[in-house]
């Protein structure tokens, strides 16, 4: 038996979030998400949480487990090595219900950096080819599944509501560094200013949180460098 302390909040009834304790009959290879299924099926059907793929691909089930932002589906109970497991929603985001947070703010920031490939040259007959080295530059950033674990862990994003955030900045770098994209330094203009890349204090909370082991700080520092160089040759926007 593993004790689960799960944070509950129903905005229609409760004034503040509170913790509820459940005893889960844990299997040997059980993940936190499976434990949550167990709670819903056997103990309390009113528990709300978000999930979809169950395989660490969709990024829906990011939540705070034992003090760290993780994906519930890829966190095994035996890896946590703890008799009591505390589960709460992602911090610093508005709670919709129980473990579900409002990701609106996160995705609005994501839209700001134009998260799509822009190439207005005429399409070649076959694909736009990349060399292995060109692809290797953006390999790490492509793994991002937009779960919001880094954004929620970022102290700067928590204190500055206009900060674009680590996930969006990682994507900004991913497209800026992509050899097929030709928006060029216009992308830097999108992340310029006091709420852009330069706001990052290199706290590495994002890197600590990322379930895909991406280091968003690396991308953000590249963008900072680009912004500085851009200012020296031609002003961005």
């Amino acid at each position: 038996m593993v004790t689960f302390k799960i944070e509950r909040f129903n905005p229609d009834v409760d004034k503040a979030p509170y913790f509820q304790t459940y005893e889960v009959a844990a299997g040997k290879e059980m993940s936190v998400l499976e434990a949550l299924f167990y709670v819903v099926e056997n103990l309390d059907g009113s528990l709300a949480f978000r999930y979809s793929c169950r395989g660490a691909v969709c990024g829906s089930c990011a939540m705070r487990i034992n003090g760290k932002n993780r994906l519930a589906c890829q966190t095994l109970l035996k890896k946590l090595k703890s008799p009591v497991i505390t589960v709460s929603p992602l911090p610093h985001l508005p709670i919709v219900k129980d473990l579900i947070v409002d990701m609106d703010h996160f995705f609005k920031n994501y839209e700001k950096i134009k998260p799509y490939l822009v190439n207005n040259t005429s399409a070649p007959e076959k694909e736009r080819r990349q060399s292995i080295l060109e692809r290797a530059k953006i390999d790490e950033m492509i793994a991002c599944i937009l779960c919001g674990a880094c954004f929620s862990a970022c102290t700067v994003a928590a204190t500055d509501k206009k900060f674009i955030g680590p996930a969006a900045l990682t994507k900004a770098y991913r497209f800026w560094a992509d050899s097929r994209d030709n928006l060029g330094d216009e992308r830097l203009a999108l992340v310029a200013g006091e709420h852009g890349a330069l706001r990052c204090h290199t706290l590495f909370n994002c890197a600590e949180a990322c379930p895909k082991n991406i280091v968003p700080t690396y991308s953000i520092q590249q963008l900072k460098g680009g912004l500085v160089k851009c200012r020296f040759s031609k002003p961005a926007k």
């Binding site: 909040f9 911090p91 610093h92 709670i95 862990a153 290199t202 909370n205 600590e208």
Partner: peptide
């Protein structure tokens, strides 16, 4: 619905 919590609540890492 934003919960009041410490902004350095996520301070497990060396960087923080």
């Amino acid at each position: 619905n934003l919960k009041k919590e410490s902004v350095i609540a996520y301070q497990s890492g060396i960087g923080m």
